[in-house]
Nucleic acid binder design. Structure first.
Length: 829
RNA sequence: GCGGGCGUGGUGGAACCGGUAGACACGCCGGCCUUAGGAGCCGGUGGGCGAAAGCCCUUGGGGGUUCAAGUCCCUCCGCCCGCACCA
């Protein structure tokens, strides 16, 4: 036998070069304008599918997490291609963003350069990994040819009133010197990027009206095939609450203050009223009262506190009286007003009715300040009581009713009296997209002294990001320093105007890139609608669970907004989602500071890309976190070597006439056994691929290969060639280089041009099987049983099994449970 | 506190619908081949008792449903994730 060695360093570059020169993975859009074929249409050619992994943020070199994500996506893409579908599998880069700018601040290197360098590294490695990308559609969000259309989308939103500008209390990161979206502030009130404690500032900012879509963002979750935990996270984030809005009137000022409550059934128990320190009327209310000074001080103190301090539910409740009262509309009672920082301006109306008997926070406050507590729901012992019960001491109309029932009745009554109405509240806030940073997409508006805010005309797009020298954050956008750029003409009156100097949150860029891939080179429009009809929505989206809220919510929102603007034809961008688990090392997240980073490039250099790809798919279910181990990887490497060598040996031993092997007929003995194993593996890998069980799919190919080795002395050469070629074919989606090379050695053919193998039903069946014989549920013996045996025959076989006989041993047989194809359980007493 | 998930050999994991627990791989042990091997091939490997046949135990703990439970139900323990002063 010749000494053949598996040499990934020779095999892999050869196939890379072929796929690159032949542009193997490119797909064309249909050109016919009228055709605008619907996806999957019977007469529209092969079915299509759109397989997409989240685009990477190019910073430095790709890491193992990228390798895992793109190995998953690539396996799915290959599988669908070989099932006969036309697969769109593109790639791009989320190239704007803070890290590149911070790097520029440190080194002076322009973000465009460092980003381009990183993109080049990603391109190199994606090719070396053999990811089957349609490179003709490649994009980067920092290219004017891309962000031109990001700006165009902004203008459409602006015109529709979905983008707006207002002054607001916003989250400000003192380190990065920029405002942040709510979503970019973590639970401790820290900037998600740099970890600095976030402050609150009043600033004029751009917002997108995502709250208009809260109900649809929530409801449409039911229509998409996403992991339940991601849907749950989005539901929590949207935070829908049903209740009522009720007006409390301050007679002294003649102003109505609406409050939102989820418990209108407890309205009669309201004994005081609380406003948030940020409420615009707080100072006005206190003015002229003896409390003016203390309110002023309290509000000032509250506003300077960090979110972290404010957000701590554990600390004692504080607040001060406003010296005013409001009237409870249900009973005409005047109750005192307070300002307290446990009431949030961002939620509801910034004011609450306080029902200390039935709310823990109000209770705590009432105890602290000696306020009356009035029970109106009879139920469990002790106060506060937040459970259900019977309404008491409220109003003859409602007393005695179960509180859930009273809730609706009270809302109806309020509504008929004009004192309130049913209402729904959301936790979701409008999306703040202004960033006082340089490396982002310029917001395409100008400010004219005469005309005010003027959108840049679409024909003048893109508003190009100018080059600057000084990236140092100064509390306003570094762009403000580019005077030549800021000074411009008003598109309406031609007079002097100044450009908007804030840039957009990078999440805007990544909220529509999947649309651009469908028509990536279109210079006249962001997309041709027919191109979107061909590919969208994405059939399978793949990416890290860390984007469960931010990116995935924004992309859904923008898709719905664009549909409402009649710019596309679907409501949801991603039909199915798969979330990729993290790769750790020694149980911890890989990081430079820990020194536990596994570099894909060095792994590929050492053992080849196939081993690296197969291993990240083999070492556990892909949606779970998994720990990297070099030893585990060696096992996969050995397996690939075994496959390749057996393919080479089998080819060498043949007569040189290579062809895709046909299924050998009339096989028996070892030949039949190996053919059965082959078809078992075909079935197993196919079904495992459909459920993203790559680890068990690869294990099935290992089993097949183990049998090829075990039986190789006993089978015909044709049988062996058939089995090994199928092993290579099944492995191709996970290890494309070895898969293609081994298959070619045996057959002379290109494996990716072969249809995915189909298991032969007759080979999946056996004429007999091992029947498990149980006595009282415990396995006592195993006997061979004919596959077509009836229940009576199976019982007889089982009862005759030696070890069953000894366990039954004259005891009474109560019953026999037969599971054909599996077991017989004899129940004795 | 609310919501979601998880707990299986020395290790990563498998068992998809309640039906042979531990596939596959790592590690370890043994054999073969070789001048040599950190190469390759073959075999063994949950724990206990036993010469063997076989028996007993075993999926975080306890209880239950069932002919049959890793899987379903209850309960407790531990871990992970998301949300959280959200009215």
């Amino acid at each position: 036998m010749s000494e053949r060695r598996y040499r990934p360093d020779e095999i892999e570059p050869r196939w890379q070069a072929l796929w690159e020169s032949e542009r193997t993975w490119e797909v064309q859009n249909d050109q016919g304008v009228d055709a605008a074929p619907q996806r999957g249409r019977a007469d529209g050619g092969p079915p299509r599918s759109y397989v997409l992994e989240m685009l990477p943020y190019p910073s430095g070199e790709p890491h193992i997490g990228h390798l895992k994500c793109y190995s998953i996506g690539d396996a799915i893409a290959h599988f669908h291609r070989r099932l006969g579908e036309r697969v769109l599998h593109p790639m791009g880069y989320d190239a704007f963003g803070l890290p590149a700018e911070n790097h520029a601040i440190r080194t002076g290197v322009h973000p465009r350069e460092s980003t381009a360098e990183s993109i080049a590294a990603f391109q190199r490695q994606f090719r070396s990994w053999g990811i089957s990308i349609d490179w003709s559609r490649e994009l980067a969000t920092d290219e004017p040819s891309y962000y031109r259309w990001t700006q165009w989308i902004f203008l459409q939103l602006l015109r529709a009133g979905l983008a707006y500008r207002r002054e607001a209390a916003v989250k400000w990161c003192p380190h990065d010197q920029t405002v942040l979206a709510n979503e970019q502030v973590d639970a401790e009130g820290r900037c998600e990027r740099c970890g600095a404690l976030v402050e609150v500032r009043q600033l004029e900012q751009w917002f997108l009206r995502i709250t208009d879509y809260a109900e649809r963002l929530l409801g449409d979750l039911d229509s998409i095939a996403w992991p339940e935990h991601v849907k749950t996270m989005q539901r929590n984030w949207i935070g829908r609450s049903e209740g009522a809005e009720v007006n409390f009137r301050c007679e002294e000022l003649g102003v109505d203050y609406p409050v939102f409550t989820t418990r209108p059934d407890t309205l009669f128990g309201a004994t005081f009223f609380v406003m948030a320190p940020e409420h615009p009327d707080v100072l006005r209310l206190a003015a002229g009262t003896e409390h003016e000074r203390t309110v002023h001080d309290y509000v000032n103190h509250a506003l300077t506190e960090s979110n972290q301090e404010r957000g701590n539910a554990e600390r004692p409740k504080t607040g001060v009286p406003l010296g005013r009262t409001v009237v409870n509309p249900v009973n005409g009672e005047a109750i005192p007003m307070f300002v307290a920082d446990y009431v949030l301006m961002e939620y509801g109306t910034g004011a609450i009715m306080a029902v200390p008997a039935h709310d823990e926070r109000d209770y705590e406050f009432a105890i602290e300040y000696g306020l009356p507590i009035r029970r109106v729901v009879d139920g469990g012992e002790g106060l506060p009581y937040t459970g259900d019960g019977t309404i008491v001491d409220s109003h003859p109309k409602f007393d005695g009713m179960p509180n859930r029932e009273a809730l609706g009745a009270i809302v109806d009554w309020l509504q008929s009296e004009g004192k309130g109405h049913a209402s729904v509240n959301y936790r979701l806030r409008d999306w703040l997209i202004s960033r006082q940073r340089y490396w982002g997409c310029p917001i395409p508006v100008v400010y004219c002294d005469g005309c005010g805010l003027v959108p840049v005309p679409e024909e003048d797009l893109p508003v190009r990001l100018p080059d600057i020298d000084d990236y140092q954050p100064k509390g306003r956008s570094p762009l403000a320093a580019a005077e030549d750029w800021v000074d411009t003409r008003c598109p309406e009156c031609g007079g002097r105007a100044r450009r908007e100097t804030d840039t957009m949150d990078t999440f805007v860029d990544s909220s529509w890139y999947f649309l651009r891939y469908c028509d990536a080179t279109n210079e006249r429009a962001a997309w041709d609608r027919a191109a979107l009809r061909e590919w969208m929505p994405v059939d399978q989206y793949i990416g890290g669970v860390e984007h469960a809220i931010l990116h995935l919510m924004y992309a859904r929102f923008l898709t719905k907004a664009l549909k409402d603007l009649d710019l596309l034809d679907f409501d949801e961008p991603f039909r199915a989602l798969f979330t990729v688990g993290m790769v750790t090392k020694d149980g911890a997240k890989m990081s430079k500071s820990r020194g536990n980073v596994v570099s894909p490039a060095s792994i590929v250099e050492r053992v080849g890309a196939d081993t690296a790809r197969c291993y990240v798919l083999f070492f556990g279910p892909p949606d779970q976190d998994a720990d990297w181990s070099d030893e585990g990887m060696e096992g996969v490497h050995r397996f690939l070597g075994r496959l390749w060598r057996l393919a080479a040996e089998t080819a060498d031993a043949g007569d040189g006439a290579r062809a895709v092997p046909e299924l050998p007929v009339n096989a028996a003995g070892a030949d039949l056994e190996l053919l059965r194993k082959t078809h078992w593996a075909i079935e197993k890998v196919s079904s495992d691929l459909r459920r993203f069980a790559f680890n068990t799919a690869i294990a099935a190919v290992m089993e097949l290969l183990n049998d090829c080795y075990r039986l190789r002395e006993d089978v015909e050469p044709a049988t062996q060639a058939y089995a090994v070629a199928n092993a290579a074919s099944l492995l191709f989606p996970f290890a494309p280089f070895v898969g293609a090379d081994a298959f070619e050695l045996l057959t002379g053919a290109r494996v990716w041009e072969q249809p995915w193998p189909v298991a032969d039903e007759s080979l999946l069946e056996h004429e007999e099987y091992e029947l498990v014989c149980q006595v009282n549920g415990r396995v006592r013996d195993r006997v061979m049983a004919p596959s077509d045996a009836g229940e009576a025959e199976l019982v007889a076989l089982c009862m005759a099994a030696p070890n069953v006989v000894s366990h039954v041993d004259g005891r009474d047989v109560v019953r026999q449970v037969v599971v054909p194809g599996r077991l017989v359980n004899v129940v004795v007493r």
